[in-house]
Design a binder for these strands. Sequence first.
DNA 1: AGTGAAATTGATAATTATTATCAATAATAC
DNA 2: GTATTATTGATAATAATTATCAATTTCACT
Lengths: 148, 148
Amino acid sequence: MSTSANKFNKILFTILKRNGLKYTKQREQILNTFLSLKGHTSVDTLYEILRKTNPSIGYATVHRSLKLFNKIGIVEMVKVGNQKALYEHKDKNRHHDHLVCVKCGNFTEITSDELENLQKRIASRNNFQIIDHKLIVYGICRKCKNKR
Amino acid sequence: MSTSANKFNKILFTILKRNGLKYTKQREQILNTFLSLKGHTSVDTLYEILRKTNPSIGYATVHRSLKLFNKIGIVEMVKVGNQKALYEHKDKNRHHDHLVCVKCGNFTEITSDELENLQKRIASRNNFQIIDHKLIVYGICRKCKNKR
DNA sequence: AGTGAAATTGATAATTATTATCAATAATAC
DNA sequence: GTATTATTGATAATAATTATCAATTTCACT
Ligand SMILES: [Mn+2]
Ligand SMILES: [Mn+2]
Ligand SMILES: [Zn+2]
Ligand SMILES: [Zn+2]
């Protein structure tokens, strides 16, 4: 097991304990495998990958765990319309949002301090205590624009 | 039938025709009843209201029509997580976004030219042609903050 | 290390929102 | 008015997510 995996496992252990949850080998596996991937991963995809090394893992467990990881703040979730949830790594200290192409479904990631600050201003103006936000910009990506 | 309803009906007729769609009395009823309401309306709510005056109207028709109205650009749709879609009036020339309270579910509407412009800049920087966008800020509203 | 309370797992059923099907009906172009 | 084509309403199907529950595992405490 790699050093970085060990690091993540310790973090996982700590956060689970803090939330009164148990550290299980499934949760460890799910998180480590998830973190070994990049981009936007669905439960199905992760499940298929996991069962190669652990054929007895349950779909529900993968689903529950990703949802849980999101809830306790260690992974990010993005949902577009009624499509199935996608999970992605949580970038420490830099939130990102998405440009989603309605033609090809591609995600472009964007970060903007201006956007973050603007939201803070709008929220405080409304006496609203921000927990999180999700911005999705729908449109046509560079590639698809050039395809005509 | 009121003058304003007649006006909307003409607009509806024009837009439907432009899209090669038919003007039906169900669509007329659904749009007019929808427009008589304010706030964020679910299919279920609208359906229950509609069947009081037209007991034979179908749920699927209401669902399809709202979806269609959104598609052809005459009503707005907002979806929070896996909850059922909510529909709302389309404010002419001013898009709005939402602050959603995670405690009480309340929606606060926000408009911001700054936000609109910022998105345009981000999009053009990425060579992305914006069609639409949805921003949802999750947090705790004024009311719920004071409740403790 | 052993014990017991409590949480988790895996298989699967249930739920929920949404979409598809299709025969009957209605709208529109001619 | 007729033919063509879209829409409707009832209902089935789909798809994503969540609930159920007996068996298993974790973990705090000896
Ligand atoms: Mn992303
Ligand atoms: Mn609104
Ligand atoms: Zn594209
Ligand atoms: Zn609230």
